[in-house]
């Protein structure tokens, strides 16, 4: 399943997409360790699989929580994206 966490408002679209079918295979949960803002958690989803998710209290402010990892110039690979060895994570902005 592709889970899109985030929102769309007057200023744009801000979604982090997690391909949870890939999460099922994951053993090291690199995204949880890599995110400096501690936005990721491992949950048991509705189909009883262990998958990554964005914590509830970050979902409506990801534009701001992700801000420090997204400088305007010389943007490095995002820590969460680099930490996810299975390539399950993408950002929409």
């Amino acid at each position: 399943m592709k889970a899109n966490y985030g929102y769309m408002d007057g200023s744009g679209e801000f979604y982090i997409t997690i391909d949870t079918d890939l999460c099922i295979e994951c053993a090291d949960h690199g995204c949880v360790k890599a995110c400096p803002a501690g936005m990721f958690e491992i949950i048991v989803d509705d189909y009883d699989d262990e998958v990554a998710a964005i914590k509830e209290d970050h979902r409506k402010k990801i534009k701001y929580d992700c801000g420090p990892c997204k400088p305007v110039n010389d943007r490095p690979t995002l820590p969460c994206v680099a930490g996810c060895t299975l390539g399950a994570l993408t950002h929409s902005w």
Binding site: M1, K2, A3, N4, Y7, M8, D9, G10, Y15, D46
Partner: peptide, 12 residues
């Protein structure tokens, strides 16, 4: 009826 992809907007 199993979810493949979802997108939600509950901020606005």
């Amino acid at each position: 009826g199993k979810v493949k992809n979802f997108l939600m907007n509950d901020k606005c």
